[in-house]
């Protein structure tokens, strides 16, 4: 694992495999990475906003749990963005198929499940208040 992390920070290692690709492919890969990074930043921003703009919730520390969960999810998305970028670049240079990934589906299901839980919490609160 540490070897893989060291490789992310070593551009020479990445350039040592395969053929130099059409620069447009590399730039497209870079933009994909940036789009993922902004997705991660949006989650981090959401976590920071939840921590300071949500009113205290009926369950103890639920607000803090939501905030930390979003922050950690954002950090995970950022790390995974680097990993996927490096693996894409390698595949492009070697003329192989781009690596498949379950991550987008898992992320979408996680966020969807979180949203459904929050809807239930809001409805339960509305029913409890009336």
């Amino acid at each position: 694992m540490w070897e893989a992390i060291r490789r992310w920070f070593d551009p020479r290692d990445l350039r040592s495999v395969g053929e130099p690709p059409d620069y447009r492919f590399s730039l497209a890969n870079e933009r994909t990475f940036l789009a993922w990074l902004r997705t991660g930043l949006a989650l981090v921003g959401g976590g920071l906003a939840a921590a300071q703009f949500l009113p205290p919730l009926p369950l103890t520390h639920l607000r803090e749990v939501i905030a930390v969960a979003l922050l950690l999810l954002g950090a995970t998305v950022a790390v995974r963005a680097v990993d996927h970028w490096a693996r894409n670049e390698r595949a492009i240079r070697l003329g192989q198929e781009l690596p498949a990934s379950r991550f987008p589906a898992v992320l979408a299901l996680t966020i969807g499940a979180g949203a459904v839980l929050l809807v239930i919490a809001v409805l339960a609160r509305a029913v409890g208040a009336s």
Partner: peptide, 8 residues
């Protein structure tokens, strides 16, 4: 993200 979590 980690600094934010620390603050929270």
């Amino acid at each position: 993200a980690l600094l934010g979590a620390l603050l929270v």
